[in-house]
């Protein structure tokens, strides 16, 4: 087992970070405006500062080359009078200029190519993804609901405002109807109690009379528990139901009509109509 850089084939384990040749941007930087940063419209920026963040300075390759490879201002006028060392130095400087220009252009081209390659790669990956992606047909998407679409949304549609209003009205009407029927039944029961009160024993003399009647020969009390002796009251019940009476007494409708004057009005109308018919008959006979 080797140790140290030999582990990595004679190289150091950590390679230095690749140095950027262009430390400044070589073309104008575009900044995408971000609505979450900067100053609000009603806030003023601090003194000696700008409202918008400054963009970094840039220098194009052409400018940089022109600025760097300029010939010295004090050029000797007679080139032939130079010594060989001077000539060599000048040639070397010229070579350096050429190499510099070449390297700058190469790096620029490399960066351009790198960007193009990256765009191509992204486009290719996107195309591959789309190629293998199973797309539901647009027809099914527009017509058939899927199980997952049911699970994504609410399972039940809530009542609309109109439906809620109708339901409330319906419930209110049902409640009022129930209350009315209850009151009607109670009034009917009260009327029945009133009619039954006629037979109630309220005096001592009535009680004695009732006792004598009960113990008189032939008036034996029949045990109510024996079903054979329980008299049926179907005929009375049918009569009451048909004519709206209570135990052959005037029913609730009749009493109500009497109280509010409807019965009287009805009788008058009937009488008027009868008179009218009689008069017609008389005219015909005459």
């Amino acid at each position: 087992m080797v140790k140290g850089p030999a582990k990595y084939g004679g190289k150091s384990g950590t390679l230095p970070v690749v140095r950027q040749i262009f430390k400044k941007p070589i073309k104008p930087v575009e900044r995408i405006p971000d609505k979450n940063s900067g100053y609000a419209p009603n806030v003023k920026e601090p003194r000696n500062s700008s409202r918008e963040q400054k963009l970094p300075e840039f220098m194009t390759i052409k400018d940089r080359i022109n600025k760097t490879v300029q010939l010295p201002k004090n050029q000797p006028t007679n080139i032939n009078a130079r010594t060989p060392e001077q000539k060599l130095k000048q040639e070397k400087a010229q070579l350096r200029r050429q190499y510099f220009i070449h390297s700058m252009n190469t790096e620029e081209n490399r960066l351009k190519q790198e960007k193009l390659d990256e765009e191509k790669r992204i486009a290719f990956e996107k195309a591959q993804e789309e190629k293998y992606m199973v797309k539901p047909s647009p027809l099914a998407e527009l017509t058939l609901p899927t199980l997952s679409s049911y699970l994504d949304g609410p399972l039940m549609r809530q009542r609309t405002k109109e439906e809620t209003r109708l339901l409330k009205t319906k419930r209110n009407a049902n409640r009022l109807n129930l209350e009315f029927e209850t009151k009607l039944n109670r009034s009917s029961d009260l009327l029945q109690l009133y009619y039954s009160a006629e037979n109630f024993i309220t005096k001592e003399s009535d009680l004695l009379k009732a006792v004598e009647e009960a113990f008189a020969p032939g008036n034996e009390v029949i045990p109510a528990s024996n079903p054979e002796y329980i008299g049926n009251h179907y005929a009375e019940d049918v009569g009451d139901a048909l004519f709206g009476t209570i135990d052959n007494h005037p029913g609730l409708g009749h009493v109500e009509g009497q109280l509010n004057g409807d019965n009287k009005k009805f009788k008058q109308e009937v009488a008027a109509r009868a008179n009218e018919l009689l008069n017609q008959h008389k005219e015909v006979d005459a």
């Binding site: 399972l155 039940m156 549609r157 809530q158 009542r159 439906e163």
Partner: peptide
């Protein structure tokens, strides 16, 4: 059929 509170 629409699913509503009336027929749920």
């Amino acid at each position: 059929v629409d699913v509503t509170p009336d027929n749920i």
